[in-house]
C-alpha cells in the first residue's frame, strides 16, 4: 500500500464533492481573445481527466480535458454550437474541427465578461492518444502568449525554493501525491497530517475563501515557534502541503506570496 494511501483516499473522497459555487475559478479577460487564451491556460493546467464547464452567456460549454489536452466538446451544448462539434473526439491539431471549435468558442465569448469554470471528474473516457495539447491549440487559435507561467511551473518554482532543512512538503495533483521533499522518513507522517487537515479544509473552504481566487494559501501556526506549523496552497488543480517550524513558516509563505501576488 502506498505510504500516502490514506491521504489519497481522503482526496478522492473530497474531490468527488463538487465544491459549492464559491469554488470560484473563472476565466478573466478584457476581450474574447484574452478569454480564449485563459481557456487554453485552463486546459494546460488540467492533468487528470476532467469535464470542464464554462458558463458562457449562451449556456454552459463542457469540454473533455486530460493530460493537458483538449479531447472533445461534450454535449449537451448551447444551440450556437454546430452539431458536428458535439462529442466529436479531436484526434490531433490537424482535425478541421479544431479551428471550427476555436472560432465557435471565441464568438460565444464576445458577450462574456467573467466566465465561471467548474471542474468535475470526467465520466466519458477517451483513448489516451486522443486530444490536442494546449500549446498546439494556442497556435491553431492564434493566441499570442497564452501562458505567462503555468500553475505547475509556479508551484514547482516555489517548492524548489524551499531550502529550510526542517521543512517537509508534498506536491499533490488531483488525488495523487506526485512529489515530496524534506527530511527522510517524514513523508508518511506528512501524508497522515495532510489527510487530517484536508478533511476540515475542504469542508469549510467556502467560509475561508468566499471570493473566486486563482490561488489560495492557508497558514496555521501555534505560539511555540519551534513547533511545526502548516502552509497549504492551491493553484489551479494543484496543491501542496508544507510543514516547517513556526519561526520559518512565515518566510516560506512570503516566498509563495511573491510568486502569486497580483
Amino acid at each position: 500500500m502506498s505510504e500516502f494511501a490514506r491521504l489519497e483516499a481522503t482526496l478522492a473522497k473530497l474531490r468527488q464533492k463538487e465544491r459549492a459555487p464559491g469554488e470560484g475559478r473563472a476565466l478573466r479577460g478584457s476581450d474574447p481573445d484574452a478569454l480564449l487564451a485563459a481557456l487554453v491556460t485552463e486546459i494546460d493546467e488540467t492533468i487528470l481527466p476532467r469535464r470542464l464547464s464554462f458558463a458562457l452567456p449562451d449556456g454552459d460549454v463542457h469540454l473533455a480535458v486530460a493530460n493537458r489536452r483538449l479531447q472533445a466538446l461534450l454535449g449537451p451544448a448551447p444551440k450556437r454550437v454546430p452539431s458536428e462539434l458535439v462529442d466529436h473526439a479531436l484526434p490531433d491539431v490537424e482535425d478541421p474541427m479544431v479551428t471550427m471549435l476555436g472560432e465557435t468558442l471565441k464568438s460565444m465569448m464576445a458577450e462574456a465578461g467573467e466566465v465561471p469554470v467548474r471542474s468535475m471528474r470526467s465520466k466519458k473516457g477517451f483513448a489516451s492518444d486522443i486530444g490536442v495539447p494546449a500549446m498546439q491549440l494556442a497556435r491553431a487559435w492564434s493566441i499570442a502568449e497564452p501562458v505567462e507561467r503555468s500553475p505547475s511551473e509556479t508551484l514547482q518554482t516555489f517548492l524548489d525554493g524551499i531550502n529550510e532543512p526542517t521543512a517537509g512538503w508534498l506536491r499533490i495533483e488531483g488525488e495523487e501525491v506526485t512529489a515530496q521533499g524534506g527530511a527522510e522518513g517524514a513523508a508518511t507522517a506528512l501524508g497522515e497530517q495532510a489527510a487530517i487537515f484536508l478533511d476540515g479544509y475542504f469542508g469549510k473552504f467556502d467560509v475561508a475563501f468566499r471570493e473566486p481566487a486563482l490561488s489560495c494559501g492557508t497558514l496555521i501556526a501555534a505560539a511555540s515557534s519551534d513547533k511545526h506549523a502548516i502552509f497549504f496552497i492551491e493553484i489551479g488543480e494543484l496543491s501542496a502541503f508544507v510543514t516547517a517550524p513556526g519561526n520559518k513558516i512565515l518566510a516560506i509563505a512570503t516566498d509563495w506570496q511573491k510568486l502569486v501576488a497580483s
Partner: peptide, 14 residues
C-alpha cells in the same frame, strides 16, 4: 496548544 496565528491568502490579499 491552540493555533495562535493564521493567514488566509490569495493573489490579491492576505
Amino acid at each position: 496548544e491552540p493555533a495562535e496565528l493564521a493567514i488566509l491568502m490569495t493573489g490579491e490579499d492576505a
